[in-house]
């Protein structure tokens, strides 16, 4: 049996909101250590890797490994019925064909219960764990979201170049071109505003703006985003959870 209680429904709401426009359904793999998901979008360009560690939960138990096939649109509708501050418990028997979702209002004496029908999802897992990294950039997630939105107005591609002491984001299209350069900065009073860049090899990569638009839907999950880049390889965009992460692997664009 699986039972996981979130201190606040808002966390699961944000996670599902960040995923549902990229993949319509996916398997939630539940073990005694927590819940993980790997899912690829229809075009096979963007991969989502989610880990919600056991410590994220107020209470967690999973006696036997369970795979829950979940339609994210339906899941999102049901979780949307709870208030952000409610306790949210997900519950499934070992051979369940539904997932129980329970909201508890912390002030009123009110409990709401829903059942979501589970799906049979046949999906291949990809071996993404052994990736090398040539450059790592950490910056405020809101800044990254703004850069992606601003550059998308110019072009369907965003070029990222990284050198020893700066990262440059640039786009060029029919109406013109633009660029944003960021440099490392340590802000002791506001550590969430700090920017770090570490580099083994210079980077010049281009990514599809529409996929970046999907990625930045995770912005509310974390004040920071870490971008790991390797020449001629997918980029990794990581939003840390209180205990775990939501990562996106995005295949690059190439010169034809």
């Amino acid at each position: 049996m699986l039972e996981g209680k979130f201190e606040e429904a808002s966390l699961l709401k944000k996670i599902v909101e960040a995923m549902k426009d990229c993949v319509s359904s996916c398997n939630f793999n539940c073990t005694e250590n927590g819940i993980s998901v790997q899912a690829v979008d229809n075009s096979r360009v963007l991969l989502i890797s989610l880990l919600i560690e056991k410590d994220t939960f107020e209470e967690y138990r999973c006696d036997r490994n369970i795979t829950l096939g979940i339609g994210l649109g339906s899941f999102s509708k049901i979780i949307g019925n709870g208030a952000n501050s409610d306790y949210l418990t997900i519950q499934a028997e070992d051979d369940a064909d539904t997932l129980g979702i329970i909201f508890e209002d912390k002030v009123k004496d009110k409990i709401s219960e829903y059942n979501l029908k589970l799906l049979d999802i046949d999906a291949d897992l990809l071996e993404v764990d052994a990736m090398e990294t040539d450059a790592t950039i950490t910056l405020p997630s809101a800044d990254f979201a703004k850069i992606c939105k601003d550059m998308k107005t110019l072009s369907e591609s965003l070029q990222i170049t990284v050198t020893k002491d700066s990262a440059k984001f640039q786009s060029a299209g029919e109406i013109g071109s633009g660029s944003v350069v960021i440099k490392p900065k340590t802000d002791i009073d506001h550590p969430e505003e700090s920017i770090t860049i570490s580099l083994d090899k210079p980077i010049d990569l281009s990514f599809g703006s529409k996929y970046l638009s999907d990625i930045i839907k995770a912005t509310s999950l974390s004040q920071k985003v870490t971008i790991k880049l390797t020449e001629d390889s997918p980029g990794v965009f990581e939003y840390k959870l209180p205990s775990g992460y939501l990562r996106f692997y995005l295949a690059p664009k190439f010169d034809e």
Binding site: D124, E127, P234, P252, K253
Partner: peptide
Amino acid sequence: KKAQSTLMSFFGKK
């Protein structure tokens, strides 16, 4: 003009 690659050209199946 740039072409979009897919993840399958980088990652094998588990």
